[in-house]
Design a protein around this nucleic acid. Sequence first.
DNA 1: CTACGTGCAAAGGCTTTGCTGAAGT
DNA 2: ACTTCAGCAAAGCCTTTGCACGTAG
Lengths: 146, 146
Amino acid sequence: MSDTPSLDSPIAELCREKGMKLTGQRRTIAHVLSESDDHPDVEELYRRAMAVDPRISIATVYRTVRLFEEHGILHRRDFGGGRARYERTDDHQHYHLIDIESGRVTEFEDAALEKLLETIAARMGYDLVSRRLELFGRARSRKSKA
Amino acid sequence: MSDTPSLDSPIAELCREKGMKLTGQRRTIAHVLSESDDHPDVEELYRRAMAVDPRISIATVYRTVRLFEEHGILHRRDFGGGRARYERTDDHQHYHLIDIESGRVTEFEDAALEKLLETIAARMGYDLVSRRLELFGRARSRKSKA
DNA sequence: CTACGTGCAAAGGCTTTGCTGAAGT
DNA sequence: ACTTCAGCAAAGCCTTTGCACGTAG
């Protein structure tokens, strides 16, 4: 029933490709991550993983996200609040806008912004290696967009 | 010799104006902050304060920066690495560029960037309340600027 | 079979806090 | 004199880690 390893989640596939040992726990976490479109923290991942397989420990979740990050599968984000949050690595450089009332995180891209940041760094004599940018906003009392 | 309270550091003056009790420790920390142009973390502030008056505890430094932050005298910054860093509150909206080799932090302002961020938030239906932006760069192998 | 992963609980780094003595206004 | 503050050490929160057992390849 489980001898079709190729049917694993996309992230589990990645693990296999990268040659890491595919344990039950990793498979579970990979599955959970593959299903996640948001930016869960470890606690939340632990919860989701437990829903799939209760025989998992939070230490393993910590170890696994770290491992996945080292392999370039995940990106660690810090939106403040003291806990790291994770998202799948994405090809596109993108940023985050956080709704200060609901906490909801929305991603966005902006080529002009990207270019401007590089220009600014260059002006200061630097090559831009990475950046951290989060916008915190309050939803407008929408008149047009209901 | 010390009955001219008006000769305190600028930040100590602020404390007085805001009506907070001006203890020896607070005066020391205010002094240290007034002399600081960088972005020290609590540990570093503690070190600097101790150099002035060794009878200070790190708990007091923590309490004081928190107090000052609540009174709008300081801004807490998070440049990653798990520790908060502090800087004097500044009228101008500014950002930080961190040299990834030396760790040195340089401040910069940029009106166009500011405007762009607001535009982006507006486009997404938000009023921009605050933002966090740090650029991490590597100093260019300067040819012109020695 | 062997190397690596997991669970548990303890420890680590930063920050806060309860309590009692000390100090500012 | 009264209220607030400081020092100390303990505790809290997130994360890492040592150790003994379990498991993938």
